[in-house]
């Protein structure tokens, strides 16, 4: 009796899965097209009908954007810039947000509700609103076209979210270990670094990934805060490969686009579960 409907449901499930797989392949075609284009010799790129097999294949575009010393927008250098900026932002955000979230979750003091309310409220401030005054500030500090000029504002933007995320996690942590450490004579800083932080690795990783992604991909702020082209991060360098009066070939542009996806792809493959967990933590309690 029961096997009939179940088999039918199994068959339905299989058909659904296959349909979804097909859709996923279709969904990723734009990315495939980027990679395929980046591997074609220049004279084969603009072809109708479109050719999906990059044969003969070449790595000339990758070599050009990465290594050519005198090339347009120096994607190789931009790649490094982005890496420094993203890692710097991660370090700064994780440190400051963890330190700030800890007392907000585990200590009682005057003003903590106000501080938390201001931080959460600030999540609503569009970045574009502070663009001009931030530029004036960074210029006065002499930080235009520097790493700190990109890292610090980037970290300040993600900070409030980080506090929010970490506080939620700290609130759910059992207090026994902390108490035990305190009885052993540990001060607040020692409790924080030896007990709380190690226990919070998953959520710290989630925040780190979030901060990395937003710093790696940010476009508007570096577009204005960097005047010296050798300090451009990847998104800006890529966007400016395309001139208005002279058309750059798609080859190097697509090679640069493909390269820009690599670090997050690696993070994504290695830390898939953390990302899902991070999105979950950030999304559901929002």
């Amino acid at each position: 009796m029961a096997t009939g409907p179940r088999r039918r449901r199994d068959a339905e499930g299989l058909a659904l899965t296959l349909a979804l797989l097909a859709l996923a392949v279709l969904w990723l075609l734009p990315i495939v097209w980027v990679v395929v284009t980046s591997l074609k010799p220049t004279e084969n790129i603009v072809r109708l009908p479109p050719e999906w097999i990059p044969w003969p294949a070449t790595t000339e575009h990758y070599r050009e954007v990465l290594f050519s010393s005198s090339r347009t927008a120096r994607i190789g250098r931009a790649f490094l810039n982005s890496l420094v900026i993203a890692l710097g932002t991660v370090a700064l955000v994780v440190l400051t947000a963890a330190m700030a979230a800890y007392p907000l979750a585990r200590m009682r003091f005057r003003g903590r509700h106000l501080v938390f309310a201001v931080l959460v409220g600030s999540l609503m401030i569009p970045n574009a609103v502070v663009l001009v005054p931030l530029y004036v500030l960074i210029q006065r500090l002499g930080w235009l076209s520097t790493y700190q000029g990109l890292i610090v504002p980037e970290a300040a933007t993600t900070f409030a979210f980080g506090v929010f995320l970490l506080r939620q996690f700290f609130l759910t942590m059992p207090g026994e270990l902390e108490d035990a450490a305190r009885i052993d004579g540990a001060n607040a800083w020692q409790v924080f670094t030896r007990i709380v932080l190690p226990l919070s690795q998953p959520v710290l990783a989630a925040l780190a990934i979030f901060a990395f992604r937003s710093a790696w991909n940010d476009f508007l702020w570096p577009l204005i805060a960097v005047n010296r082209p050798e300090m451009f991060p990847l998104p800006v360098a890529l966007a400016l490969l395309r001139g208005a009066y002279a058309a750059e070939s798609y080859g190097p542009i697509m090679a640069g686009a493909a390269l820009s996806a690599v670090p997050l792809l690696v993070v994504f493959v290695v830390a898939n579960r953390r990302i899902v967990e991070g999105v979950r933590l950030s999304g559901l309690k929002g």
Binding site: W216, F219, L234, P235, V236, L238, A257, S260, A261, L265
Partner: peptide, 8 residues
């Protein structure tokens, strides 16, 4: 796709 930058 969400891991890509808006420029890419």
């Amino acid at each position: 796709p969400f891991t890509l930058s808006v420029v890419t």
